[in-house]
Write a protein that binds this DNA or RNA. Structure first.
Lengths: 199, 199, 199, 199
DNA sequence: GATGAATGAGTGTTCATTCAT
DNA sequence: TATGAATGAACACTCATTCAT
């Protein structure tokens, strides 16, 4: 029995390992060459795995793409919240700004990441529940903060939605194309508007 | 001589005609099947033109795609401004809101259009000058309005940029996925924030 | 000892059971989707058995295919003879016609069966001994009848062979494609020729 | 104008040539390795043509397969009729037997041909009009003969259908598997039955 | 300028088979 | 015995691009 469990878990572990090799292979290729120019062949080759193996774990390229993005962006949101908690920021607006700033800075450091995530946001990511998950996380954090710091906002969900759209959309253009200006120059204006919104 | 000129212009006309057939063929296919699922073969067939002819007018699919989007979105902005002028709206905020509302309503009526335009915005459209052109139009109109109605805004270009990003990004999600809600429900919140921004 | 035997036979039973599950799984899939579109994976999945298990009982798809057809067609011939015996038909030609009619009617009721069997007849079934077995049954029955009803035919084996070829070939086309006409319309002509043949 | 026609016909000729190269390449491979074991890659390689070219002329393997069989079997029927005419056989039964005998002999000389044609007959060839065409030819010839030699048969179409089914089915087994005996031994019995049928 | 036949590299996907557990 | 994860050769089919006419 113990043997069986151990054997099972050995196999299970191995499967998990393969799955992760594929995910990280896909991630690095998506970042490096873009999704359109990454073939499943590329992914498996890069993962040192047979081509057929891919189909044991993912349905097709869209499937692994969504999984990659879900994983990476969840990670990002989590980090942002942890960072904010670590800094012991104790008022609501600064907490929100810190979260957004952390995310923006991550994108600045990893421009391919914003390309990857954004590309997909616009390609129908909202159809499935990936954004909802992340959004869920930050929404919860946002509403906790509201309660904790005794803030009243009418329809906080809508405000948060608009804030995130504004930030991600502006960050995308500013970081990747310096439009309308470099992100560091843009930030003050951006954060100023956000503060108005949660005013 | 006159004859020659006429012949020349006839030829020129014919060329222009071919080009336009290709553009409108591409547009209808992009709208109908999406860009990824439209091949150059599809475009030429649909345009009743030989496959090789495509390459006399466009470099590749990305080229015609950009041209199509440029044309369609310029048209849209122009219409929005004309509509606003026709309505004799005489104060600055209402003029701005009317322009944005016109654009949003157009997207609602033609959801494939917002899909097409947005897909491309996020696929590197900012690399070339297409958005700049449109943006130029509306920026000019925006600044004219500011002057005419005696408004003072610090850095109107940045504010306008943020407004457009906010509107297009929110409209995309709301119209296509009802996230966070249907567009008609979202509009009041959206316009309210915009009015704050040009406050 | 008894225990051992029981255990052994239990194991044996179990093996037989697996084999039969595979056979009936294959049969239903062959009928439903055709042989070419049925994979070994399909067969094992449908039989609730691991993929590797297949190879413990059968060499490959051709192997199980032949076994399936052998089983199903032997069954069919047996049924036809039993039906004829039950009806107490007491003259030779009517007995033969009844057997053939029973088979044709079975095919009419299960068109996929004639597709399955025929496909394979033409795909090299004669290479192995499957047809011989069935043919053996009906040949024996045929020759018994000849003796019992005091009929004399030169080379009854050849005549029977030709009759079966004629019937199965005509039935296939008539049942599946109504060529040259529907089977009910064709039957009188067919049986009339057969009666001539056993003259 | 003349030039254009000549150019057109040059191109057209070339296309016809490519198509025929593909057909004959497919035929030789089907004969040599069987249809299932012949890939489109094999066909184009063998025809010294690019893979994509295949799809300019044929939809898929089933398409070219049908065309090959149609061509080859039409040829066979035509030859059989010509041979019969050349021999100045002047009575109906002998003419019919000669046609059938010619076809059988061709199959004996080219066993792969009967394999190819038969395989397909049983794989749903009757769905399309290939057999009808061939059958049309021989039916016409059959009915011409009936008229010319003043024969009366009730429903000659049905009789002919049964004769062809009987002959092709028996020939297949006899030629390929010597079942129930070699074709030369079988022929007398076969032809004797056929004569009864048109009796 | 216009054509469209030809190309062939490239793609996603399937599947019989093996073998460590 | 039984399993099912892994393999990788094989497949049909697509498509942007070229170029002789």
């Amino acid at each position: 029995m113990t043997d069986n469990v151990q054997i099972m878990s050995k196999v299970q572990e191995n499967k998990q390992f393969k799955r992760e090799k594929l995910l990280s292979s896909a991630y690095s290729l998506f970042i490096r060459k873009g999704i359109n120019d990454t073939s499943i062949n590329d992914i498996t080759e890069n993962a040192d795995v047979a081509k057929g193996t891919f189909y044991l774990y993912f349905k097709d390229k869209w499937d692994i793409q969504n999984k990659v993005i879900a994983e990476k962006s969840r990670l990002l949101f989590d980090e942002a919240i942890i960072d904010t908690n670590n800094k012991n920021i104790n008022n609501f607006p600064d907490r929100l700004i810190n979260i957004l700033d952390y995310i923006i800075n991550s994108f600045v450091e990893n421009k391919d990441l914003i390309k990857l995530i954004n590309k997909n946001l616009s390609m129908g990511l909202y159809d499935n529940n990936i954004l909802d998950e992340q959004f869920g996380n930050i929404k919860e954090s946002f509403e906790n903060d509201l309660k904790e710091y005794n803030r009243k906002i009418k329809r906080p969900d809508i405000i948060l939605f608009m804030i995130i759209e504004l930030v991600s959309s502006c960050a995308y253009n500013s970081i990747l194309n310096d439009k309308p200006m470099q992100i560091d120059e843009l930030k003050p204006y951006l954060y100023s508007e956000i503060k108005k919104m949660i005013g």
